[in-house]
Design a protein around this nucleic acid. Structure first.
Lengths: 262, 262
DNA sequence: ATTTTATTGTTGTAATTTGAAGATAAACGA
DNA sequence: TCGTTTATCTTCAAATTACAACAATAAAAT
């Protein structure tokens, strides 16, 4: 973020709303440049873009931004936006535990009429600010560290539903395509989500590709689409192609023979 | 949604109803433009359209909740403290929806090793900050306005447990000892809590004694102790005595022949 | 020194917003 | 009930704003 963008941010926060014209004159640059600036800031959800200007971002979305430091936040927000773009209005979805999925919840706030079932207290809190949503929270034991809800009761609860999209995060992906996580309880819930979703979206940043975790969650062929920031290694790409899994990356680095979006 | 629409929304929520003419003059645009705005907002169910203007959406009583939260806050905090004093460490408890019960959750934070089952998102969020607690949240549909969780699934979930204390709030108490509330769904949950608690604590401020509400929750003889701020009318006191219900008041106004604490 | 990368301006085109005018529908008084 | 008034809806044109592609420039890396 450059100097000008910093100043734009503080101006917006001071005044609530500024036009692009004003900013352009202020900084002696063309409106197009300002547009690029506020687009970049808007992608990070540091402000909200409007036709003709920019305003403060709506409250809930960045309350936690200041208090919580999330690793690779910027990448996660971009992945979140990308994922949200593939969810239609009025869809029914599962969202599970994870910082990435919480970002997705924020990105989904501007949708309409979603039906969302989640086992994540934070996700429920975030989505509650949109009155057109119907939010169902899964019952069970609340984990103190991240507000996740797990346990047998949670799994039973999830099994009551069958939804359009299951959105899951993950801790690691093995080179052979095994999906991995650290927490046994969380894995059980994720499996239940996969079983009861018509389509499964896996959202994960590039750091998960070369990590290891203990508990086997499932196999990559159980998902329908992968959303990530960087283009994965050729090996993973092949694996995805073999299993007919859509790949959506934030940065569209050129790689031959594969579908991408945005 | 553009800046003007945001402002229209907050104006509507402030004033309850505004005419299109007023808004048009306010923003220096034609009424036609305002119509388009409120049509768009109405489609999203963020407000309700009327002939000639716009009013608050029926589904959004969020504003009302936040104002209600402040009403009699001090009394509620005192009641909360009083109630918390009667809960021992390591107890298992139900806590239901309500501003008073949320205050009780805060007052319980200094306890140790509590097992708490709740159908209130806010209560879960509050209690999460104590790592010695085990928190179980009931699953079900999340109400936008106050974070309450209700529905058949919620009741089934609660029936799985049997706890030491059930702490419930309430909307009104009839002079004949009938416990009343406004919301049918909430009542069903409260009934389930009463059935599955060894002891039932009712916490309520004095304003509830001369109010009316629609839905019958139960009878006062189903509770074991009443926590309130002011000493109730002689009539209620007699009723409590007849049913052998403990009365605990914040202000110990002298009244003959009855047990009090603090 | 040359290539790469990032930033900004320019231009043409697409999309959005707005107001105006006529047609339609709803509210209201006699 | 009927007309009268007022509000709303529809459609269109003008103005504004946004976007994408490319060129120019400056800074950074090799």
């Amino acid at each position: 973020m450059n100097q000008r963008q910093q100043e734009i941010l503080s101006l917006v926060q001071q005044q609530g709303f500024i036009t692009i014209e004003t900013l352009a004159q202020n900084f002696n640059v063309t409106p197009q440049t300002i547009r690029r600036d506020i687009k970049s800031l808007g992608d990070k959800q540091l402000l909200t873009r409007y036709h003709g200007g920019a305003g403060v971002s709506s409250s809930i979305e960045n309350v936690e931004y200041s208090t919580r430091q999330i690793m690779n936040l910027e990448e996660k927000q971009q992945i979140a936006k990308l994922t949200a773009n593939h969810i239609p209005d009025r869809a029914s979805i599962f969202i599970n535990i994870g910082t990435t999925t919480e970002e997705i919840a924020k990105a989904l706030l501007h949708h309409n009429g979603l039906k969302i079932i989640t086992n994540n207290l934070n996700v429920a809190a975030i989505l509650r600010s949109n009155p057109t949503f119907e939010i169902i929270i899964a019952g069970g034991i609340v984990r103190q560290r991240d507000g996740g809800i797990t346990g047998e009761a949670t799994i039973d609860f999830i099994r009551q539903f069958k939804v359009d999209f299951g959105i899951i995060g993950i801790s690691a992906i093995d080179p052979d395509g095994t999906l991995l996580d650290f927490d046994y309880h969380e894995v059980r819930v994720a499996q239940a989500i996969i079983e009861n979703s018509r389509q499964v979206f896996l959202a994960t940043d590039h750091t998960k590709f070369d990590r290891n975790a203990m508990v086997r969650l499932g196999s990559i062929d159980q998902i329908d689409a992968l959303f990530t920031d960087l283009y994965p290694t050729e090996h993973i790409v092949t694996l995805l192609a073999e299993n007919n899994i859509d790949l959506h990356t934030v940065r569209s680095k050129v790689a031959p023979g594969h579908k991408q979006s945005q």
